[in-house]
Structures are given as C-alpha cells and as structure tokens.
Design a protein around this nucleic acid. Structure first.
Lengths: 224, 224
DNA sequence: ACTGTGTACCTTGTATACACTCTATTACCA
DNA sequence: TGGTAATAGAGTGTATACAAGGTACACAGT
C-alpha cells in the first residue's frame, strides 16, 4: 500500500492539466452547455485552485476550438452547429480512411491480433444494453487500427476529432439497430485487411463513418 | 488619418497572442532551434512582458506540438525528425485531397475567379528569384481553393500543417526547377476543376504534395 | 415615456510575490 | 583522490494583487 501511494506520487500532474481535462470532459459531456460563459474566478472557487491554472487550461481549450474567446469578455463554450459538426465529420472521414490505408500497408501479425481481440471484446458486449461500454470498445477497435498506422500525429488528431463528437456518438449507439451493424462492419474491415485489400477496407470504413454522419445530422435537426 | 488610427485601436490583441505568434514564427523559421529551452524569465525580459503572457503562449504551443513540456523543467522546442515530418505530410496530403474534392463540389463562379487570379499572380513572379513571394502566392492559391471548400475547421488544420513545414517549403522552392512545375500544376488543377473532373484535380494535387514529400525527405536526410 | 449619460461593479489582462523542486557545485570525510 | 552530502541558485508551479476595460442599471433631462 505504501508502495502504490509512492507510485502515485510519481504520477505528477500540474493543476493546469487537471483543470484542462476536467473542463474538457465537462464540455464534451454537455455539463457545460454551448454558449455558457467560463468565468475564471467562479471556476477557481469551484475547483479549489487559483485563476492561473484555470487560465492556462482555457488557453488550450481555445486552441482546440472547444471554447470561443471574446476580447475582454472571456471564454464561452463554443456552439456546435450542424455545419460545424458536418465539417468535423468530413475531416474525420478523410483521416479514418487514411488511417485504414496506412494500417493496411503497415500491418503486422501482432497488430492484427490486437485488432481482432478488440473486435471480439466489442462483439461480446454488443448484445447487452451497456451503451457506454460498447462505445468504449468500438473506440478501442479503431484505436488498435490507428496504432498500426504508426502515425503519432494522426492518432492525436483522430483522438481529438473523436472526442468532438463524443456526445452524439453515445446517443447514436443507443439506437439498438446499430450494435449488430457495428460488429458486422468490424468483421468486414478485418477480412479486408487480412486479404490485403486496402481499398475494400477503406470503403467499409467510409460507410461506417457516413452512417454516423447521417444519424447525427438527423439528431441535430431534431434538436435545433 | 485620425480615422485610420482609430481603426487600428480596434485591432486589439492580448499580449499572449503577440507572444504566441512571435514564438511560433521563431520556432518555424528556425530562430529557436529544436531542443532549445524556453525559459520564461529570459523570454519575458527579451520581449518586455511579464511571465504570465509567456506562459499562456507556451500552453498553446504545447497543444500545437511545437514545444515539449518536461515536468518541473519547462518547455523546449520540439525536435523534428524525418519520421514526424513524413507523418505531417501524410496527413497534409489526405486533407489537401479532401479540400480539392470539396472545392470541386462546391465551386462557384466567383470562387473560380479568385483561384484563377491567385494562379495568375503566382505565375507572374515565378520567373523572378523572389522565393518568399513565390511561396506566399503559392500558399494564397491553395488558400483560395480551401476557401471554396467551405470547411472552416479544415482550413484551420491545413493552415497549421502548412506552417509546420514552412521552413522546408522555402528551401524546396529555392530549387529553380520547381517554379515552372508549380505554375503548370496550378493550371492543370484549374483545368480539372473547370471540367468538373474531381478525381483529376485530386490526382494532380496529390502529385504536387508528393513531390514536396520526396524533396523534403531528401533534404532532411542530408541534414541529419 | 424614452433616450442619453454617468457611475459602480464585475471580469479579464498583466505583473509580481512566494513556495517548491531539481540540479550543480563545493566542501568535507573516508 | 574519490565519493557523498549539503547548500545555494535557478527555474517552474501557483497564488494574489493591481490595472483597465466593458456592461448594466439607475437617474436625469427632454
């Protein structure tokens, strides 16, 4: 026990990073609503730190596009319109295609094993109603592919784009028709990769993402 | 005159943004060398501001991947390896393809005019030795295409990727063989767009970028 | 009643002070 | 002479103080 706490001591995180992740999650999960103002003093009281880490966290959120800075007024949570979401998904589609294409070309035996294992785990929970877990394991499947693509920058960008649509992704998975669909698509992507048929894998991935675009767009239209 | 200075008063920029852009340019142009430490007090004296704006600028550079944070040690300029540059260019290729494809589908009469004008301006200076100007106008040509693509997020990401390879791009353009090549490629892209031949335009753009990848890679190998 | 102006407060923008960690150098001991 | 410990210095991490601008509300004048 003493050891584990010592290990934890090593895992040092500056307050700004804690604040950054906290605010980020709060925005992506919808706890902080679009248009809501982020006031530094208020946040500093809420999180029990001073303004300095808050401000530094906001600078990062600003660059990430999650908050909008208004000069001498401060930060507010960026509003997500259908247009901005379509923009994000257009980019995500292109980059997921790239990832699959790269992964095909750079596939290894171990990489394939990891991907298969991820698909299997996802399939196992797909018939339960644990939507969050399905979402997590679907992400893990794609992460496994990204890993094989071996492009660190691409991984970072896809992570970012992924989280931008996080809120809607969970809603999307609540439609029970989609679970078996996802499992089927995973299988097909694996088959394509095993055959070394890059373009087929890209094609399946494209359909996978475009389904999401369609459903998320519909949801946004209902909302707004 | 009184009016123009009033207008300038409106263009208010927080010090953190001035510092951010200054440091960014310094890194991209190579004035701050990879591995070099960024010490806050030193920078604050040099730029005549306090540590606060410096720190906030560094937070943004950190998220952009231009500096590497070492806990309790501070920031240092990120090292660019051949691998990281190839990674960036892989992504840039995919996104430029996306931009051209979108632009094709969303082309307007005015958009086409702007693109043609940009190409013409670039062609006019291509036979001079003003490399910086050629670079600037080539960027303007691509920006015009991006604009028609009408994806704000994509524009932001391409800007970012563009600047990551800024240093090498200028070097690349110093090879005099490339100037006429660039002009020819611009013409061909315009022709493809006018015919509405998306895939041709994408193809030409791909070659355009892949040329750069090759040459920049060679340069890096010579360096390292 | 409506509009314009002034004032007070709230919030950001910037500077600085304080605490803590890590490192390097020096001195002392084996 | 080599190694270790202590100390000083430099730099980041965090908090707070101070300055300046913007906004909202109230009051007065038309």
């Amino acid at each position: 026990m003493a050891i584990s706490s010592e290990i934890k001591m090593d895992a040092y995180l500056p307050l700004r990073d804690v604040v950054f992740q906290t605010l980020r999650q709060a925005i992506l999960k919808g706890d902080l609503k679009p248009g809501e103002r982020l006031m530094e003093i208020q946040l500093s009281h809420k999180l029990g730190v001073s303004r300095t880490p808050i401000r530094e966290a906001i600078r990062k959120l600003e660059l990430e596009g999650l908050v909008l800075m208004i000069p001498r007024k401060g930060a507010e949570v960026a509003k997500i319109t259908e247009k901005t979401l379509r923009d994000v998904l257009e980019i995500r589609l292109a980059l997921e295609q790239l990832a699959v294409r790269l992964a095909c070309g750079r596939m290894t035996q171990e990489g394939l094993e990891v991907i298969k294992k991820a698909a299997k785990q996802c399939a196992e929970v797909s018939d339960t109603n644990d939507v969050m877990e399905v979402a997590r394991l679907d992400v893990a499947f794609h992460d496994a592919i990204h890993e094989v693509a071996s492009n660190q920058r691409l991984i970072q960008m896809l992570d970012n784009l992924q989280e931008q649509v996080y809120r809607y992704r969970v809603e999307y998975l609540k439609l029970d028709t989609t679970h078996s669909q996802i499992v089927k698509e995973h299988q097909e992507i694996i088959k394509a990769i095993e055959k070394g048929d890059c373009e087929w894998a890209v094609e399946v991935t494209s359909l996978h993402i475009q389904n999401q675009v369609q459903i998320v767009s519909d949801m946004l239209r209902e909302e707004g």
